[in-house]
Design a protein around this nucleic acid. Structure first.
Length: 424
DNA sequence: TCTGGGGTCCTAGGACCC
DNA sequence: TCTGGGGTCCTAGGACCC
């Protein structure tokens, strides 16, 4: 019984370093959209005490003064690097679950008899590093929850290979005793507080608590965690691509927006992007929700959150239908006199693209159903947006600030890295 | 002055049914 | 005046993840 978790070290920060060898050992942080807050830190930046999620403006001066380097997020690039890493894993192991942009679980049950799993882990790490430049850590253990613990343990023990296996009961109990309960996968801030009150402060305490008690006092979710910590597998590898259940496109604005005429084209941009994603998923939706909200941080200005869902009688993935629904949802929730800081669109209630469910009643907004038109537009827009809808804001996605982005090294012809620049 | 974006699962409670 | 019991389905909201 063995699973592995492959986790890219400080993924976004590591990506920024791949084509910038001069930044080796330099503290790096990557910022969220609008250069709002820190979403990734290199080891050096972590050592400087830069916290996850801290607002950039609070640390900017001291971080730069200490020689740190900052980047706006470049998700196109990170997504491409992620795909390269995942490709390598999928080429080596038949059972891979891509869990997030920087993590994948590997099913090693059948490998266990034939390979030294620790050695195999080292082999994977070296291969990924050599082929992509991305450093990964690997935790090997009987359950998913324990693989996370294994990775933490490698960090705690400062294992130089960054590969760690929890094989024996003794190893496991020892690792659990050294893991604060908050570091257990599935225990967030709220649960941590409740557990501490019940005098459960490390992972071993949690593992030794009666699962039935946990279920009664907390939830089935936490009960599963307890069982996983005990080595009983509750979370299986999901290797088939599971269909999404909702699609969200939302952004905070760089500058506040307080009039409807400015907001409309922004929300249209979100709707267009969401519809593209929906077609990519080969799904149709029958619910379109729009939300707008003011900043929760500015206590001097009045707050407002508007949220509205529009039902579609017939499921659709045609951008024009989604645009109409979005407009229908936005207009009634907008109020004058507020400085809106964020907006978004949420598509839900999906049905498969192929099945066709007609409404029992006459649908006054009968979907357009011009699949081929959408296909052509999607094809034309793959690399850069060439076709726009009249209601969009074609100049910008949203009024967003992004001043420190690295080039799209691997996904844009005009931004490829150049070797031997000096001899040009 | 400046605080991200995109997901999942579970549960409680209301609406509704017989 | 007295006013059951047992279900299902749906949604909003909470908690978590990266």
């Amino acid at each position: 019984m063995a699973l592995a978790l492959v986790d890219c070290e400080s993924f976004y920060a590591s990506c920024e370093r791949i084509f910038r060898p001069d930044l080796k050992n330099t503290p790096i942080v990557v910022l969220s959209n609008n250069d709002g807050c820190v979403i990734a830190r290199s080891t050096e930046a972590k050592k400087m005490g830069v916290g996850m999620g801290v607002p950039w403006f609070k640390i900017k001066n001291s971080f730069l003064a200490q020689g740190g380097k900052v980047f706006s997020s470049n998700f196109t690039f990170y997504g491409d690097m992620s795909a390269r890493v995942m490709n390598i894993l999928e080429g080596l192991i038949p059972r891979v679950e891509i869990y997030s942009i920087d993590e994948a679980f590997l099913g090693l049950d059948t490998f266990e008899q034939h390979y030294d799993l620790y050695g195999f882990g080292c082999y994977i790490r070296n291969l990924v590093k050599q082929w992509t430049g991305v450093p990964v850590r690997i935790g090997i253990a009987p359950t998913k929850t324990l693989t996370k613990i294994a990775i933490n343990e490698a960090k705690r023990l400062d294992i130089s290979t960054k590969v760690y296996r929890l094989a024996t009961k003794k190893d496991i109990r020892n690792a659990l005793a050294n893991t604060p309960v908050h570091d257990v996968w599935g225990v967030g801030r709220r649960l941590n507080a409740h557990l501490n009150k019940a005098r459960i402060t490390n992972a071993l305490h949690l593992a030794d608590t009666d699962p039935n008690y946990i279920r009664r006092k907390f939830s089935v979710v936490l009960e599963r965690t307890v069982r996983e910590l005990r080595g009983q597998r509750c979370l299986n590898l999901e290797h088939s691509m599971t269909a999404k259940k909702q699609i969200i496109v939302s952004r905070s604005f760089g500058n506040r927006v307080s009039d409807l005429e400015t907001l409309k084209p922004i929300v249209s941009n979100f709707a267009v992007r969401a519809a593209e994603k929906l077609r990519n998923e080969k799904q149709k939706c029958s619910q379109v929700s729009v939300f707008i909200r003011t900043s929760p941080f500015n206590k001097r200005k009045p707050e407002h959150t508007g949220y509205k869902t529009v039902e579609l009688l017939t499921p659709t993935n045609d951008t024009r239908d989604i645009l109409m629904a979005a407009k229908k949802a936005l207009i009634p929730i907008f109020r004058t006199g507020y400085d809106y800081a964020k907006a978004g669109i949420l598509l839900s209630r999906f049905t498969n693209e192929k099945s066709k469910q007609y409404s029992l009643f006459k649908d006054p907004n009968e979907p357009k159903e011009n699949t081929r038109l959408m296909q052509y537009i999607d094809q034309l827009n793959v690399y850069e947006t060439r076709i726009y809808y009249a209601s969009q804001n074609i100049n910008q996605w949203s009024p967003m600030k992004q001043n420190m982005a690295s080039p799209k090294y691997t996904t844009n012809w005009h931004e490829l890295p150049i070797a031997n620049q000096g001899e040009k």
